[in-house]
Computed example of a mutant assay.
Amino acid sequence: MNSDKGKSSLASSDVIVIDFDIPFEFVYSIATGIELLDMIFIMASVTWKVRIVAIFGIVASKYIQGYYQPTTRELIGINGTTKAPVMNYASETSLGVATIRAFKMQDRFFKDYMRLVDTDASTFIFSNATFEWLVLRKEAFSNLTLFTTTFLLVFIPKGFVSPGLVGLSRSYAMTLTGT
């Protein structure tokens, strides 16, 4: 009977991910990709040499994601296996709270629960660490593009490009790191 509850909880969690998280992440990824391409297009239209650096940055980012994605999949799988016992333990403890109090075993159950939470939290920390690893490397490539754009804009002959376009390209280069 208890295993059915665990499967039901896990199944409802999967349905929530499929219904809400995946469509949101898909739309967010598409919007960010379009924004990124727009920024690179605007910067490249002002300083065409940025295309070389942008292509290098995109290839390097895809290469880095090749390391990141398998690690993240494993950590998400491990996180799912460590989260299920926490939820199961909490639900079973709440159902048997009268018996636990009758035998004065609250401390033991609380310590067991905290041990399960610590195990679950450790995988969550590793997931965040791998994400920060990816972000750090992607920001390095974005900063390289920013530096190259700035360098090229400084050394463009005066009057070759209007100052408005230079400012536009520079502002997009600054927001590239955030994107």
Results as ranks from 00 to 15, higher is better:
K62D: 05
V46T: 07
P85R: 04
V154E: 11
L95D: 14
R101E: 11
T148K: 03
F110R: 02
I58P: 06
I52A: 06
A60Y: 15
N79R: 11
V46A: 08
E139C: 10
I125V: 15
Q65P: 07
E132P: 00
S91H: 11
R137A: 08
K111C: 10
V154D: 00
K104S: 02
P85F: 02
W133E: 01
V97L: 10
E132A: 13
D120A: 15
G80W: 03
S91M: 05
F147T: 08
Q106L: 13
T72R: 13
F126H: 07
R73T: 08
T149D: 07
T99Y: 06
S61R: 03
M114R: 12
N128F: 14
R101V: 13
P70G: 05
S127L: 15
F103V: 06
G96N: 14
S91Q: 12
R51G: 09
V46S: 06
E74G: 09
K83Y: 02
L152F: 00
S94I: 10
Y67M: 08
R73I: 08
K138C: 02
D107S: 14
T150Y: 00
F110K: 03
G80C: 04
N128S: 15
S122T: 11
A54I: 00
I52Y: 04
Q106A: 10
N79E: 12
N79G: 15
A140S: 11
S127I: 05
G77P: 06
T130Y: 07
Q69Y: 10
F147C: 07
V50I: 12
V46C: 06
R108L: 07
S127F: 09
I125Y: 10
A84Y: 01
F56C: 06
